[in-house]
C-alpha cells in the first residue's frame, strides 16, 4: 500500500493543495489538484495503469518523467496521455487501455 508523505524530516510538511475528485475506470477517487495523475493514482493504491496492447500484461509507471510511455492512459477521451506528466484536474475522466485484437502478430517468425 502506498501513502502520502505528509511530513518529511528535511523537506518539511507537504503543501496543502485543493482536493479534487476524478474518475478512473469508472470509479471515483480523490487527489490533489495539479499533482500528476500517476501520483494521484498511486496515492489511491492503484498501480496498474494499462494492459499491454498485444499480450495484455499489466503495466504501471516505470520512468515517471515522460520517457517510457508505460503510463499512457486516456484522459477525457484523449488517448496516449502520459499519467506521469499530466496534472490532475477536478472531474477528470481517466481510462486505462487494454489488450487490442492483433490478428497479424506472428509475422516475426518469418523474419527474425
Amino acid at each position: 500500500m502506498s501513502e502520502r508523505i505528509t511530513n518529511h524530516p528535511v523537506l518539511g510538511p507537504i503543501d496543502m493543495k485543493k482536493e479534487v475528485s476524478f474518475i478512473f475506470n469508472g470509479k471515483i477517487y480523490k487527489g490533489y489538484e495539479g499533482e500528476s495523475i500517476a501520483a494521484a493514482l498511486l496515492a489511491n493504491n492503484i498501480r496498474t495503469l494499462r494492459y499491454h496492447e498485444e499480450s495484455g500484461s499489466p503495466r504501471g509507471i516505470y520512468c515517471n518523467i515522460g520517457h517510457c510511455f508505460e503510463c499512457r492512459v486516456t484522459v477525457n477521451e484523449k488517448q496516449g496521455q502520459r499519467a506521469c506528466l499530466t496534472p490532475l484536474k477536478e472531474g477528470m475522466a481517466i481510462q486505462s487501455s487494454g489488450m487490442l485484437p492483433t490478428p497479424v502478430k506472428e509475422w516475426r517468425e518469418t523474419y527474425v
Binding site: 502506498s2 503495466r59 509507471i61 515517471n64
Partner: peptide, 25 residues
C-alpha cells in the same frame, strides 16, 4: 520487470521527493 510496482530508481525518487507519495511500503 514489467509488473506494476517495478520502476526506475529515478521514478521512485520523483514520486517520493517531488510528489510526496510513497512508491510503496
Amino acid at each position: 520487470w514489467t509488473l506494476p510496482g517495478v520502476m526506475s530508481v529515478g521514478a521512485a525518487q520523483v514520486m517520493t521527493n517531488v510528489h510526496r507519495v510513497k512508491p510503496g511500503k
